[in-house]
Design a protein around this nucleic acid. Structure first.
Lengths: 203, 203
DNA sequence: TAACTTCTGGATCGATTAGTATATAATTAA
DNA sequence: TTAATTATATACTAATCGATCCAGAAGTTA
């Protein structure tokens, strides 16, 4: 049975998208409700809280929105149709491409939007830190798979190699924010992937 | 001739140090004057503005303080007594060591304290972005030197290789914030430096 | 049309923001 | 001692923060 109600005057999905863009550009704390409401379609405070509950709830939703769209560039890590090396290389290149795209803020929302915050908002930092943890876990699994299928020697320290690529991947955010062009980062990725060749000499 | 005055009740250097620690931990915008004044020795608002002029001026001073102390780990890049490879490796290891030290906030103040901010404070982001630009420039010069002395082939794209190490170096901040131990990052650095060996095979 | 539900505009909440005004305390030089 | 100078504590400013309240508008169902 359809509920009786006055229809919402703004598009909730579009409003969420704009909110995500703002959080991506400015970070959680630096983005004010006033600015959010303006960019979300000049909606009133009452409409905002009725539709999104709170700034924190909106941020959580924006993070999920990001993970389900732009953030999907890391999904290649779990793509079993690719070799582990291809999975990592594809993830890095897609990450660099996405983060330098001029259609949206540069860098990664998960890395940048709550890298620091006031002590009272440490739970906000946890929200994105948890996402980073998940991605690191996928990277870890991918490298473990490389050992399992014999692509790299089993003597390799998985945590160490996970850290190599995880560190590089996170560093891309700052490069993108600082205006380093995609082509340069892409060539750097080629060089970094060369690490994989070293195992053949060491094995 | 000595000026006549009432002596300051707090230690300015110590107050600046505490301010730097707060900006390091929480970032520029998330750190309030109230908290700053409390950590700087419970100084009054009047005393604060008399001694430091404004929050922005204090931040600039804190950034310089950081660059002159903890930030000096990157000075190895310009150390001509080291080979270029040694200079980069030393810088990375010292960076990782410093940023994971439990005596102070983890990660790098230059990378974390103003990675994002509200649009009205973009000039604050510029302050630290400029420091990153300088470090990147030193890295660039170091790699150019490697070519000049014949350590790596002149066919190497200097900007590309600069990006490899600059990206990795910036990524260390997030790793350190996420609690990855020094030992793991240090072993990852060994692996990344292996890139240098690839040139011998490609040359 | 009347009853019901939901959304919206506008005023407003208390708390906090960075920064300032003023009066007084503490020092040194004359 | 007195004048000059600087730092202090206290109170305060206007603006903004995230969030709430309420009256009324806009829709659906009976």
């Amino acid at each position: 049975m359809a509920r009786t109600r006055r229809p919402r005057i703004f598009d909730r999905d579009e409003a969420l998208l704009q909110a995500m863009m703002l959080f991506w550009e400015q970070g959680y704390e630096a983005t004010s409700l006033l600015q959010l409401r303006a960019d979300m379609g000049n909606i009133s405070a009452a409409s905002f809280y009725a539709a999104f509950e709170s700034k924190e709830a909106l941020f959580k939703e924006a993070v999920e929105q990001y993970m389900g769209t732009f953030g999907r560039v890391t999904e290649s890590l779990a793509d079993l149709t690719l070799t582990p090396r291809e999975a990592i290389e594809t993830t890095l290149r897609r990450t660099a491409k996405m983060q330098t795209d001029s259609d949206h803020p540069n860098g990664c929302l998960i890395v940048l939007s709550a890298s620091t915050c006031s002590s009272k908002n440490n739970h906000i930092r946890e929200i994105v830190a948890e996402k980073r943890k998940q991605i690191r876990s996928h990277l870890h699994d991918c490298i473990q798979r490389a050992i399992d299928v014999g692509e790299i020697p089993s003597s390799i320290d998985v945590s160490m190699l996970t850290t190599v690529f995880d560190t590089f991947m996170h560093g891309i955010s700052t490069q993108a924010r600082d205006g380093v062009p995609f082509a340069t980062i892409d060539r750097a990725i080629t060089e970094v992937m060369g690490i994989w060749e070293l195992f053949k000499h060491s094995a």
